[in-house]
């Protein structure tokens, strides 16, 4: 029906679109849901988002603490300084070395353990518990034990080497062996966690596939290579991503066992950040180091996700 200009129109009730809050309060289910996540949301904002933003801001200041009034904004100077900071890049190199050693080795060893722990063996639950115990042990306690085991004179590892006819090593005192020693301890400590994840992945593989393969005459190795490994690929991807992220953030083992030595051979990025912030009190520079580390981790994660997608696999990211 058409109306001429100026002609009065009959009154009709206009349905006004409800705004967000009206919609929110009208749906009791949503309301309850939001209320449930509210504490976590507040926690996230207060303890994650705000500190993240604050540290990003700090990275552009020369704050040397503790009075925040003494935090001059210096733009990108901290980042420029880091470009030529040889100790920082040495730490970055060490972190990457640690990652390249610990992640693949840790994954392979824990997969082998998980394969054994996935068998119907007597007392397997006890062994699973034993393998998981280092995960829940304190880093300090574990480190003290390992320092004793690695002692060049009375350590059991050198006894083993001597038994094998190999020369003893000064594990933590030699720049060549210190990082491999830290890697070894880290792998041992994280073995149980990786094993549990591998076990979950292994147990999600339908048994029928293995049975069918066996009927078709496939050997155990062929079944492992053609069935287990491909079907474990989401687990592999998860462990690789979390392993790389965790390894690049290694700190506790270095802090307790080597303090970055000898001769800076185990000086990793997070330990450097700690030293800058809490020994040299250069919070601005330490924050910029943390953000560079974030950029490296983020880039590596993006590359990993991209690579997996390129292979046509689904990712959770």
């Amino acid at each position: 029906m058409a109306y001429a200009r100026g002609e009065p129109r009959p009154f009709t009730a206009v349905q006004k679109k409800p705004n967000f809050w009206q919609r929110f309060w009208s749906r009791s289910n949503e309301r309850v849901g939001y209320l449930f996540i509210l504490p976590s949301f507040i926690h996230l904002i207060v303890f994650l988002v705000i500190p993240l933003g604050f540290s990003l801001y700090l990275s552009f200041t020369d704050w040397r603490g503790p009075n925040f009034q003494n935090a001059p904004f210096i733009g990108a100077e901290n980042y420029q300084f880091l470009l030529g900071d040889r100790r920082f890049w040495n730490a970055m190199k060490n972190s990457i070395y640690f990652t390249l050693l610990s992640v693949p080795l840790g994954m392979v060893i824990s997969l082998l353990v998980a394969l054994v722990m996935n068998q119907n063996l007597k007392g397997v639950y006890i062994f699973r518990t034993l393998f998981f115990m280092p995960v829940i042990s304190s880093w300090v306690a574990v480190s003290v034990v390992w320092i004793t085991l690695l002692d060049p004179q009375v350590g059991i590892l050198n006894y083993v080497l001597e038994g094998l006819g190999l020369p003893p090593a000064n594990w933590l005192g030699d720049p060549l062996t210190a990082m491999p020693a830290v890697v070894m301890i880290s792998i041992w400590k994280g073995l149980g966690f990786n094993m549990v994840i591998w076990l979950a992945g292994l147990q999600a593989i339908p048994q029928e596939l293995h049975e069918a393969a066996a009927i078709d005459g496939a050997s155990r190795w062929q079944a492992f290579r053609r069935i287990t490994i491909p079907l474990l690929s989401p687990t592999t991807f998860f462990l690789a991503i979390t392993g790389v992220i965790g390894a690049l953030q290694v700190f506790s083992s270095v802090y307790v066992i080597t303090k970055g030595g000898p001769r800076g051979s185990t000086d990793v990025v997070v330990f450097r950040i700690y030293q800058r912030a809490f020994e040299e009190f250069e919070f601005g520079l330490a924050s910029s180091q943390a953000w560079v580390l974030f950029a490296v981790i983020f880039s590596l994660t993006v590359v990993q996700v991209w690579y997996r997608r390129r292979q046509g696999e689904e990712t959770m990211f």
């Binding site: 002692d151 060049p152 004179q153 009375v154 000064n170 005192g173 030699d174 000898p262």
Partner: peptide, 8 residues
């Protein structure tokens, strides 16, 4: 290194 071993 030697000192570290001596005092360990």
């Amino acid at each position: 290194t030697t000192l570290g071993e001596m005092i360990q």
